[in-house]
């Protein structure tokens, strides 16, 4: 619990440094996700991919970023200027906000202090994630509307209705998981999985629903209807140029990183090292925390790879197929999963 009555400046400084590190790290991962995406796409299409900037093209993201910064910034004269700038800012902000509750690893012990590798261990962690996800719509909607372009508006409406529809199934999948864990705090959920089995063994269907919804919430293929260039020219960011466009594209990668982190936390044990008993090696101290964080990153990387793998394998859905899948398949499935989980939990406790 945060003490609001007296300002603990040392704690504030510690948290500020932690926030800076985590935000920088998320941006770095997102930056290299763009590189990974291009390399994986190239591999799957039997090409080489970016290979000019630096060895193996490893400086390509920097070159892309530099290019975006130096491009001419165009604000359409018929657009609503404030909202036009607010759109990409909100998209980026909501993408970054979720990382506040993700537990990155066990506590670090530095300078006679215990430093938790989590910005805020709030007791409503999952609901916070859910709230931020539901706010993510505004970036797309405001940007699409403020552009004053019919294609942008259509894409924004598509994107928003898609996110709203898939939020429901995602929420119900959450509830089934919460019945098992009995806690909303992400740290507690991970600790339970460290001492016991991973939640994926108890909630395989719930995870599948969650994964499909995560794809839809990130606007990734096969759910990238708001960017369907064959029907909508380019999508909700059609009028955007320079770094404002970069923010929209970049927010997608940050979202992908964070939703992979959430999935790894909820279903795959977070920073738990598989086939390894952490409780027997407490004398390792900080190294254990670092090993946990590395393990967490490997899990996240596998998820990010899966996202990209799907993107370059599966074609885009049609809009009515998307809605049918969301409302008529995933929600009843999630409800059935919730009811069965509830019945089993009740039966096991008796």
């Amino acid at each position: 619990m945060i003490h609001l009555l007296t300002i603990d400046w040392l704690l504030m400084l510690e948290k500020l440094i932690l926030i800076a590190i985590i935000v920088m790290f998320s941006l770095l991962v997102a930056m290299y996700s763009t590189y990974a995406e291009r390399k994986i796409a190239a591999f799957m299409q039997d090409r080489i991919g970016p290979n000019r900037a630096g060895p193996f093209g490893i400086l390509q993201p920097l070159a892309d970023g530099g290019k975006l910064f130096f491009k001419e910034e165009i604000i359409p004269s018929s657009s609503n200027k404030i909202l036009f700038i607010l759109g990409p800012s909100l998209a980026m902000l909501t993408a970054m906000m979720t990382c506040a509750v993700v537990p990155w690893s066990t506590d670090l012990h530095l300078f006679n202090k215990t430093i938790p590798l989590q910005i805020a261990d709030v007791n409503i962690g999952i609901l916070y994630v859910f709230a931020v996800v539901s706010l993510g719509v505004y970036g797309i909607m405001i940007g699409g509307w403020a552009s004053n372009n019919k294609f942008s508006l259509l894409a924004a409406l598509r994107g928003a209705s898609q996110v709203i529809s898939y939020e429901l199934a995602m929420g119900i999948a959450f509830i089934a998981l919460l019945m098992l864990t009995g806690s909303l705090s992400l740290r507690t959920i991970v600790e339970q999985q460290v001492t016991s089995h991973w939640n994926i063994w108890y909630q395989p269907l719930g995870f599948l629903i969650f994964f499909v919804c995560a794809l839809a919430e990130c606007n990734r293929t096969p759910f990238d209807l708001s960017e369907a260039e064959s029907e909508l020219n380019m999508g909700y960011h059609q009028e955007y140029s320079s770094m404002k466009l970069g923010f929209y594209l970049f927010a997608e990668y940050v979202n992908m990183f964070i939703s992979s982190a959430i999935m790894a936390t909820l279903y795959f044990g977070g920073y738990d090292i598989p086939f390894f008993n952490e409780a027997a090696h407490t004398d390792w101290g900080n190294w254990l925390a670092i090993a946990g964080a590395v393990c967490f990153m490997i899990k996240i990387s596998i998820f990010i790879f899966t996202f990209m793998w799907i993107r370059w394998t599966v074609p885009r859905f049609r809009y009515d197929q998307l809605m049918t899948l969301g409302w008529k398949k995933l929600i009843p499935l999630a409800l059935a999963n919730m009811l069965i989980t509830g019945a089993v939990v009740l039966w096991m406790h008796k």
Binding site: A131, S134, Y138, M141, L157
Partner: peptide, 18 residues
């Protein structure tokens, strides 16, 4: 606090905006 955000800011106001 969080339910207020989910329900009002995240759902109802999106429909208003729509």
């Amino acid at each position: 606090a969080i339910v207020n955000l989910i329900v009002y800011a995240g759902a109802i106001m999106v429909l208003f905006l729509f």
